[in-house]
Design a protein around this nucleic acid. Structure first.
Length: 317
DNA sequence: AAGAAGTTCAACCGCTCAGTG
DNA sequence: GCACTGAGCGGTTGAACTTCT
């Protein structure tokens, strides 16, 4: 049995909405509300699918929507929430008044993903590439490490070189001293064009050397320490270590909140670790239960069920 | 100036889930 | 418990726009 189409495909207009159509839809909804999307286009005199009307309304016409650029605070919120819930765009959008899931999804795919990658953070796991490499190195046997490392370095190299050469994203290679901790330095963006070529060359050199010497990877939990840092100490040249959302890259202060990097993970898997309380104080696990519970991130309703050292995202284990 | 390449974002598609009879 | 329906979600597409060569 085939799936029943949501509307008649014939006589249904598709593509960009005209101002006239927008007006018809807006004025109809202002008078009658949004009950029964299937009937709305018919009653409003639109040759559109109900689904298309719903999308147009929720993503564009709703009067409470923001249409401008995402603010820095909004971007930071998206990144933090994505680290926990993953591609649950509707959940993330629910925490950003005036933004839709489509807005958030588009912004993530076009801007934030690249921003994170450019900072040496894997946008899927929200861990630094060095962290992921270390996990690989500690989990697998030597032959697998060599092969995987080579493959991974190839990917990272391509991505990094693309970003460094095509985008004005750059790294200040001196770790900030505010932490007084070179084991976990914080890097900030350097937009000076003259610094770029030198860094690109250093990275190219370090990466190609690393690929040629996979054995060194096995000697450390952090392969970058042995290979990437060829032109300087690893802490100075390795742009992939010690990223912190709360610091200079986004201008906010770290607050010791549950958002710190240790609990970042692939998100879809993580909803199962969140305890959610509904209005009656009853617990429910994440997932579908959260569909109508838009305020699960409020401090009043969210209970964290995570030991601080719990490694939620080990892709190998 | 013009074509190519890259980017953005509105819109569509197909799927899942909740509600209902 | 089952079938059906509507709503909502996330992934993908493609037209419009921008930047690069």
């Amino acid at each position: 049995m085939g799936r029943i189409p949501c509307c008649e495909k014939e006589n249904v207009k598709r593509g960009q909405w005209t101002p006239e159509e927008d007006n018809k839809l807006s004025s109809y909804i202002a008078q009658h509300g949004t009950r029964n999307w299937r009937l709305i286009p018919k009653n409003a005199g639109l040759q559109r699918c109900g689904k298309s009307c719903r999308l147009r309304w929720t993503n564009y016409l709703r009067p409470d929507l923001k249409h401008g650029q995402f603010s820095q605070a909004e971007e930071e919120t998206i990144m933090k929430l994505h680290a926990v819930v993953g591609n649950r765009w509707s959940l993330i959008a629910a925490q950003l008044p005036g933004r839709t899931d489509n807005d958030v999804k588009n912004h993530w795919n076009t801007k934030l993903k690249k921003k994170l990658t450019g900072m040496g953070i894997d946008p899927v796991t929200h861990k630094s590439f060095s962290h992921l490499m270390a996990e690989i190195a500690t989990t697998l046997g030597p032959p697998q490490v060599a092969n995987l490392t080579e493959a991974a370095l190839g990917c990272f190299k391509d991505e990094m070189l693309h970003l460094l050469t095509k985008k004005r994203i750059d790294f200040q290679l001196q770790p900030t001293t505010s932490q007084g901790n070179n084991m976990n330095p914080t890097y900030i963006m350097n937009t000076k064009p003259e610094a770029k070529e030198d860094y690109v060359e250093k990275i190219k050199l370090g990466l190609s050397k690393a690929i040629q010497q996979p054995d060194h990877m096995m000697m450390s939990n952090n392969p970058w320490e042995h290979n990437v840092g060829i032109a300087a100490t690893s802490a100075q040249v390795n742009p992939f270590s010690g990223f912190q959302y709360g610091h200079s890259a986004f201008g906010a202060e770290e607050d010791g909140s549950p958002w710190n990097q240790s609990m970042c993970s692939t998100a879809g898997d993580q909803l199962g670790h969140l305890k959610l309380e509904d209005e009656n104080g009853e617990e429910s696990q994440g997932g579908k239960d959260t569909r109508n519970g838009n305020n699960i991130f409020s401090t009043d309703s969210l209970l964290w069920d995570l030991p601080s050292d719990h490694d939620l995202m080990n892709p190998i284990v």
